[in-house]
Design a protein around this nucleic acid. Sequence first.
DNA 1: TCGTAATATTGCAATATTACGATATTGTGA
DNA 2: TCACAATATCGTAATATTGCAATATTACGA
Lengths: 107, 107
Amino acid sequence: MGASKLFMFDQRINEVARIAKVLAHPARISILKYISEQDGCICNDLVDEIGLSQATISQHLTVIGNEGLLKGTFTGKKKSYCLNIERFEELQMLLNSFLNKTKSNCC
Amino acid sequence: MGASKLFMFDQRINEVARIAKVLAHPARISILKYISEQDGCICNDLVDEIGLSQATISQHLTVIGNEGLLKGTFTGKKKSYCLNIERFEELQMLLNSFLNKTKSNCC
DNA sequence: TCGTAATATTGCAATATTACGATATTGTGA
DNA sequence: TCACAATATCGTAATATTGCAATATTACGA
């Protein structure tokens, strides 16, 4: 019942799914978009921009961060987030590697 | 509280998230992988292959199908699923379009 | 027509995710 | 040190997803 039979899938497959999960919520897409547009940004900007509560934004940032997609630096009491481009590209490549392999043969 | 504040995000953003959501579960990744490897396949094969119940597999197939990723043809009482490559590539392009735009500027 | 095989749907239980108020933490400047 | 601003974490409610047994549907062959 319920979820989490993840154990039964091989690592590669779980990895692709995990990457996709980060992108699977519009708030996180918005956050990534905004961060990239701002060339570094701040959580509170996101709260204003996206219109979700500070707690919720912070939570989404954690989800994105857990996949290694963010570099955050404190400047004073504010935290500047920006993309970890290397990791970002790595994930994009993993995704595309799966997608390309999948579409290569078909009926 | 809880979920679904999707209305507040623009269409483009919701679309990317929706695409990612299809890929956000290892069972669905496995299904896509298996279908592509088999050059057309059958639901019951998937049940054996993936080890989830027939009902669950069928459900996942519906999720994948709702994004237009499957073409199913009945041959007798069996249903042959295969990838809708055109749609598959379209989604891949949408994803990459977002990812590329996002990573292009950074601090 | 019946029985059977393959797939879909329904109903429901278990989990996971999302959201937010309240509170904690951390750093700054007075 | 104290008050304040920015961010993180906790607790909890609402919603969504996942999974399966049971049942329905559909198509075939006898």
